[in-house]
Nucleic acid binder design. Sequence first.
DNA 1: CAAAGTCTATTTGTATTACAATACCACATT
DNA 2: AATGTGGTATTGTAATACAAATAGACTTTG
Lengths: 241, 241
Amino acid sequence: MSRTRHNLCEQVVHDLGVRIVSGGIEPGDAIPQEWMLCEQMGVSRTVIREAIKSLAAKGLIESRAKRGTIVRPSCVWNHLDQDVIAWRARSDESGQNLICLTEFRQAVEPKAAAMAAERASTPELDRIREAWEEMDRTAGNDVEAFLAADIRFHTEIMQATCNPFFSPVANVIGASLESSLRVTNCLPPDNIPSVPLHEKVLRAIVEHRPMAAHDAMLSMLMDAAKRIERAIQKTSDASPK
Amino acid sequence: MSRTRHNLCEQVVHDLGVRIVSGGIEPGDAIPQEWMLCEQMGVSRTVIREAIKSLAAKGLIESRAKRGTIVRPSCVWNHLDQDVIAWRARSDESGQNLICLTEFRQAVEPKAAAMAAERASTPELDRIREAWEEMDRTAGNDVEAFLAADIRFHTEIMQATCNPFFSPVANVIGASLESSLRVTNCLPPDNIPSVPLHEKVLRAIVEHRPMAAHDAMLSMLMDAAKRIERAIQKTSDASPK
DNA sequence: CAAAGTCTATTTGTATTACAATACCACATT
DNA sequence: AATGTGGTATTGTAATACAAATAGACTTTG
């Protein structure tokens, strides 16, 4: 039970979620019955049932009377749910998940940047600019603050597409940046070269140049992907086999 | 209470979900208190609470003791959740939602097709081919079966990317095709021209030609988008203002 | 003997009651 | 006027009881 969470139900959701996503219980298999979970976790059936409803809402499990509650095939999980992404990231020893995250970003974000360049309203442009300014301010000294600003920069671009279906991509971006921060284990100065790359994207969007925004975003992501790949290479060399 | 669902909780989730997504309760506002919902819907507090957990898991609401349960800003909703998509589609009078769905597909699917062309394994290729064959078989006579096969075709391509983050896109595809079927109000023969467009995608993927797959998918989607736009134009002309 | 139907036991689904924890609000205190 | 303090409404948790559904064993019947 890692660390205390804001209430019992969330704690149970987290524990079961991690167990399922990390492969502790395989798709098709049943999770323990309710009374058994009550015993194992020392909570009432009320709590267990509410947790089960949460996980079912995320697509992870499905309950039927008598049959029990089974883990659904992973292709129907809500893989862009913030919790599911976090649980997945936890059990990513190899860095394979980080590669998938980055790959997905490469597929979606350039097009999103282009759409933002077409449509972003003035307040949306301001929010993107503010995020970039925060990046510029914190680069080289505060890694945490830079990360937060970086996430905000990309998230605001998703919002600026004026298409709600891009919103969940923000979860991928957040997980990707956090995870890559851990993997590359970077120092404050390492953030500095990233600033002009983001600036290029910012300018293209502000000046309503979709193609330029697309290309700038793509090359920024390719650069990030390259650094991640190198870092993963290094760590797998350090602990071979 | 539209129509009877498999259990009480799901019914409550559906009713509340529709009310929230359709804008009946705005972000920042509180939903009725638990005892009030019990009265309104004629169910126990147990059921209400489990439904609330479901909606919270989808990002729609957030509960706090005393403060009540409030609707969260729509930018943190899990917009790619199957239920959320369905609820959104219900309240799409203008066709604006269908346009967003299509636009998102255009942003993601070409790249996904390219990745599938790079990596798809033989069984995955078989499943894509089978889906296309089913489309070919049912085009011109069975609209329902054609729709199902069409959805399967695109869904299998998402799976063939070998990247789990593409899976939820299948929900968008399903909603888009169903919704566009309703809007364009098409007859069986209207499906026929769609078959060779899909065949082009299929061939490119099977022959492992990423660029070709990308382009074939994109032009297919552009074609679909054009037809949808025409249909929406027509219906808004029919019922002006 | 096989196929169909029935019964039972197990598991989830729903209702009810009670109390704990929390946080907003009004009131009192300094 | 600012601060503290307690009441109160609302969600959080527990416990119990029963309903509904169904897998699997058992029985009946052709």
